[in-house]
Lab assay of single mutants.
Amino acid sequence: MSGNGNAAATAEENSPKMRVIRVGTRKSQLARIQTDSVVATLKASYPGLQFEIIAMSTTGDKILDTALSKIGEKSLFTKELEHALEKNEVDLVVHSLKDLPTVLPPGFTIGAICKRENPHDAVVFHPKFVGKTLETLPEKSVVGTSSLRRAAQLQRKFPHLEFRSIRGNLNTRLRKLDEQQEFSAIILATAGLQRMGWHNRVGQILHPEECMYAVGQGALGVEVRAKDQDILDLVGVLHDPETLLRCIAERAFLRHLEGGCSVPVAVHTAMKDGQLYLTGGVWSLDGSDSIQETMQATIHVPAQHEDGPEDDPQLVGITARNIPRGPQLAAQNLGISLANLLLSKGAKNILDVARQLNDAH
C-alpha cells in the first residue's frame, strides 16, 4: 500500500501541473516587456503551470559599433537563445518575429505568432524639431536608422535628408537623439515604442507609400524545439490566425527572394473581405531603383483552434497545428507568387547589386 502511495506522490510531482516552463529572452527592456506579455497570456491559459524567465545577451546586443547589415552573420539576435533551447536550458524563446530568419536551424520551429501590433515605422524627432515631419525637416538634416530597408525607401522619398546608421537598443538610440546634436530624427518601429509606453515620442507614423515595413514587423514569434510536442501544444494558444497568415505570406515572399538583413526588402499586408493583399518591394541601397507589386488571394481566416493538420510540417519556419492547413498554404503560395513576379521584373539584379555594395563598404 505504502509503495503505491509513493508512486502516486511521484506521479503528482512529475505531472504537468508541477512543471516549471523556462522562457528565454534577450536582456533589453523591450525584450523583457514583450516576454512578460507572452508569459502573462500563458499564465492565464495555464494557471497550474509556473513560468521562469531567463534573460541573456546576444551577438546583436554586444556589437554596437557596426551596422547590422555589415556584421555579416545571420541570427544576430537569436543564436545564443537557440543555443540555450538546444541544450534544454529553456523550453521556449520569445523573439520579435522580424529577427527570426525565414529558414531556422534544424530542430527549431516557430510554435506561435502572437497578435500583431502596429507594424509601421515611426519617426521620433529631436526636441528642437518636435512638430515637424520628415518632409518639413531642414535641408541636409541627419536621420538615424539601423535599417537598409528604411534608408533606401526614405532616401527616395525625401532626397533633402541624409540617413546615417544608429545602433543600440531603444533606450540607447533615444538617448543619442536627445543628448547629442548629430541626429534631427530617428526611425523606429511603432510597436516597440508603444510597448515601452513611449507613445508621446511618436512624431509621425510612416504610411506604406512612404515606407513599407519589415517582414514580420510588429509581431512576436515564440520559438521552440520542433519535436517538443508538449510545448508546441502549450504555445499553440498564442497563435493569432490573421497575423499568422499575413506573416506566412510575408516570410514566403522574403524567403523566395532570398532577402535578408543586408538587402532592402519591404512588405505591406492587409486582410479585407476574405482577401489577403500582399505588397512587396525591393530597392537599391540608395533607393534610386525599385520594383513594387501587389497581389491578392482569397483566404478564409479560420477561428482559433479549428482542428489543424496533425502532421505539422513547417511552413517558412512556422508550425501551427491548430490552424487549418489550406489557408496557410494559400498564404505561402501568395508570397511565392509575388516573389516570382518581382524576380521576373529584375528584382534579383537589384538585390545582387545591393548585396555587393553593402559587402564592399
Rank of each mutant, 00 (worst) to 15 (best):
V38P: 00
T41D: 09
A44L: 10
A44R: 13
A44D: 09
P47L: 06
P47K: 15
G48H: 04
L49K: 07
Q50F: 09
E52T: 11
I53V: 11
M56L: 13
T59M: 13
D61Y: 02
D65M: 04
D65W: 08
D65A: 07
T66S: 13
L68W: 07
L68P: 09
S69T: 09
F77L: 03
T78L: 10
K79M: 09
E82V: 06
E82S: 10
E82I: 02
A84F: 11
K87Y: 15
L92R: 02
L92Q: 02
V93F: 07
L97R: 01
L97P: 01
L100K: 02
P101V: 09
P106A: 11
F108E: 15
F108A: 02
T109D: 03
T109N: 07
I110V: 11
E117N: 05
N118V: 12
N118M: 12
H120M: 12
P127T: 11
F129V: 10
F129H: 10
G131C: 07
K132V: 09
L137H: 05
K140M: 10
V142S: 10
V142K: 11
T145S: 10
L148K: 14
R149S: 03
R150W: 03
A151T: 09
A152V: 13
Q153I: 03
R156P: 13
K157C: 11
K157P: 08
P159W: 05
H160I: 10
H160S: 10
H160R: 14
E162N: 05
F163N: 15
N169C: 05
N169D: 06
N169K: 11
N171Q: 12
N171Y: 14
L174V: 10
Q180M: 10
Q181R: 12
Q181L: 09
I187K: 01
A189G: 09
A189L: 01
L193C: 01
Q194D: 10
Q194K: 12
W198R: 08
G203H: 00
Q204A: 01
I205W: 00
E210I: 15
C211A: 11
M212W: 02
V215P: 07
G218V: 04
G218T: 01
L220R: 03
K227G: 04
D228T: 03
D228V: 04
L232K: 13
L234Q: 09
V235A: 05
D240S: 02
P241D: 07
L245F: 06
I248S: 08
A249L: 05
R251N: 05
R255M: 13
H256Y: 05
L257M: 12
L257V: 14
G259P: 01
M271K: 08
M271P: 02
D273G: 01
Y277D: 06
T279L: 06
T279E: 07
G280C: 01
G281D: 00
S284W: 05
L285P: 15
D286N: 14
G287E: 01
S288D: 14
D289G: 07
E293P: 01
T294S: 11
Q296Y: 11
T298P: 05
A303Q: 03
Q304T: 07
Q304G: 11
Q304N: 15
E306H: 12
D307E: 06
G308S: 10
G308T: 08
G308N: 14
E310G: 13
D311F: 03
Q314V: 11
L315Y: 00
G317V: 06
G317E: 00
N322V: 11
R325H: 13
R325Q: 14
G326P: 12
A330G: 04
A331T: 09
Q332I: 00
N333I: 15
N333C: 02
G335F: 10
N340G: 11
N340L: 07
L342T: 07
S344P: 14
K348P: 03
K348C: 01
D359C: 14
